[in-house]
């Protein structure tokens, strides 16, 4: 019982809040649930191929190859691969995380995975195109320029901060995914 609660505390908490809202503001509660149902299908539709691709990758791609491409000693090439991979991957953060997880599992360098995450969330190509059309090229261009520096800064600072022991725990965690 205690284990179940610990595992599902987030869902339980939200369900309880939702029940309260339904009880006191039925209209708002129903609209909120309606949103949840509709989007649940949309998001799952989007996630399904990701999960399949990620696990095909997990089964087929040898750890050694991955380590060579974006691992610890991949150097500049690894950074570039991570950056390009991120720029062309047009999926939201929640769908990116499993991908990042499997890259870690395959021995990817932590900073490269953070670059991949950062590049995809803040300046993937479809997003840039859409941003230009709605907010103008000036805004997009300046934000892009500033953000590319930010992404690298975040990736390298975090890798510096993590101790060897932290890294070991992180890779062990990824191994159990």
């Amino acid at each position: 019982m205690k284990k179940t609660v610990k595992k599902y505390w987030f869902l339980l908490a939200v369900v309880i809040v939702n029940l309260f809202v339904l009880l006191f503001y039925p209209q708002k509660g129903i609209t909120a649930l309606h949103f949840t149902g509709k989007n649940c299908l949309n998001f799952l539709f989007m996630l399904m191929p990701i999960f399949i691709c990620v696990n095909l990758m997990d089964v087929w791609i040898e750890r050694d190859i991955m380590i060579k491409v974006i691992g610890k000693k991949s150097g500049f090439k690894g950074v570039l691969v991570a950056l390009l991979l991120g720029v062309v991957t047009a999926i939201p953060l929640y769908a990116l995380l499993p991908v990042a997880g499997v890259l870690l599992k395959k021995g990817g360098r932590i900073s490269n995975i953070l670059i991949f995450l950062g590049a995809s969330t803040s300046f993937r190509i479809p997003l840039l195109l859409f941003e230009i059309s709605s907010l103008g090229w000036q805004f997009t261009f300046v934000r892009f320029g500033v953000n590319i520096i930010v992404i690298f800064a975040i990736a390298f600072i975090i890798e510096k901060i993590l101790s060897e022991k932290d890294k070991k725990t992180i890779y062990e965690n990824a191994d159990n995914l």
Partner: peptide, 13 residues
């Protein structure tokens, strides 16, 4: 995932 979507639904309300 369901929890996330329920929370977002509430927030958007």
């Amino acid at each position: 995932f369901i929890a996330i979507l329920m929370l977002v639904g509430l927030l958007l309300e």
